[in-house]
Design a protein around this nucleic acid. Structure first.
Lengths: 248, 248
DNA sequence: TGCAAGAATACTGTATGCAGCATTTAGCGC
DNA sequence: GCGCTAAATGCTGCATACAGTATTCTTGCA
């Protein structure tokens, strides 16, 4: 019970003494067979359910019927229930004793709260990123940004939206702080459902793009204060965009 | 499937039209029977497991044996597995395909990361608290503080520790932002296991107490900048306290 | 003795069954 | 027709069973 875990866990994992060394998992050999996909039904169900909630297929307030959803996904209730518990901890559903799970409903106040948390986290991340990010890291963000601009000009909202998220997560990732990325993505996930609705008009969209432009510029010049300001402003706009059409 | 949830959920809940009104749950009648404790094995197992991890009964790296723990807690594997999934989402355990759950191990970097997130969140919360907290709210924190001082003088470390946490959570709660409290308590929980170890010597302890004193003073005078500074300093000390005796 | 291959064991992942609670429907008195 | 009570239905919570995979043990060989 103490000496567990010292044997090879996966083919590419070797343990020496008590430290577990992880070799670069796939030999980076492009023609080698793709890594064995360790099928995890759990992950699959969690992603699926999360998407169903975010995309509005399971609207807020909906009671999740285990039998029905299970049949729909072609899995039994056991792994489904486990996935539901996982999402409950993520804050996407509420657990009501004897009555199962209900998709969480967010009012305007809660959404504003979440946006302010995101703002706080991103501002901290941005400041840290200005200090420690490599030029290469920043270049990667710039790439995403350029792609996003292309989507904007092409009018591809869905792809734009995804790249937008990727940029924000990317900036947070630049801070090289796993806990920060964790909580950021958690709140971001809860908000996704809301953002999915908020489709601003052309002028607001243009504003958002302009802000992103400046965001990248501030990052490239490693101007932490300017980046912080623009991130703050950007999230205020995000709030403006979604605040109508929310319950009290 | 649309019209769910409009009937009374609990005796004290009444629905009118489509809005659910929640009456003050217990009639605040001191001699009335205590509120029915909706038994939830799930919650019980989650709390129990969490405590076992935090208190070091399940050390980092331990593989969780469902059969064994289940027998120990006197429950079958099904609800236990659900609880484990919940904790996995909370970040206390890792899920390894086909090999179950392993208590997460945090290195020094990860702990520092978490502390910096906590710092960011608490500073934001503190600033907000200075703006919106009522004198009564602040008085409640002051009460906790006074109790804590008493524990300090009595040398009651465990109780001191708990009140310390309560004060920090309390300040965050003053910001009246549910999402903020959520993520704060989540990171705080992950850290608890670490803090549980860090037993500083008398001089550092005295420092911490002095900082708390100033923290309360800043809060009472609603001096956001000073509160922010002292919170930052306090968490730096927390880091100093635990940083030795951590894996790389 | 040390190593390797295969059998045996242990544990996880999933499905299914059953008891109990919640909700709906049906029946009954007014 | 309306409200109340009770049966019936549906669903959740939990336990158990079984299949598949990881881990350990055993045996054979050098």
């Amino acid at each position: 019970m103490i000496d567990l875990w010292v044997r090879p866990a996966y083919p590419w994992r070797i343990s020496s003494k008590d430290a577990v060394v992880v070799l670069s998992p796939p030999p980076a050999n492009p023609d080698a067979p793709a890594r064995i996909e360790r099928h995890s039904l759990h992950d699959a169900i969690v992603s699926r359910l999360r998407d169903m909630i975010i995309e509005g297929h399971l609207p807020p307030g909906t009671r999740i019927n285990e039998g029905q959803i299970g049949a729909q996904l072609g899995v039994s209730r056991t792994p489904l229930r486990e996935a539901i518990k996982y999402l409950a901890s993520e804050g996407l559903v509420d657990l009501v004793p004897s009555r199962g799970a209900v998709v969480k409903t967010f009012g305007a106040k809660e959404v504003l709260d979440m946006i302010e948390v995101i703002r706080t986290l991103e501002q901290f991340a941005g400041a840290r990123a200005c200090q420690i990010a490599t030029n290469q890291d920043i270049g990667a963000i710039r790439d995403l940004h350029d792609q996003m601009i292309a989507c904007y000009e092409a009018g591809d909202r869905l792809q734009y939206y995804k790249l937008n998220q990727a940029i924000h997560s990317g900036i947070v990732a630049l801070a090289d702080n796993a806990a920060l990325s964790d909580v950021h993505s958690m709140v971001q996930t809860r908000l996704k459902r809301i953002r999915f609705i908020g489709h601003e008009g052309p002028e607001k969209w243009a504003n958002a793009v302009a802000e992103h432009q400046e965001m990248i510029a501030a990052l490239e010049s490693r101007d932490a204060d300017r980046l912080s300001a623009i991130l703050g402003q950007h999230l205020t706009l995000a709030w403006e965009r979604v605040k109508d059409g929310l319950s009290p």
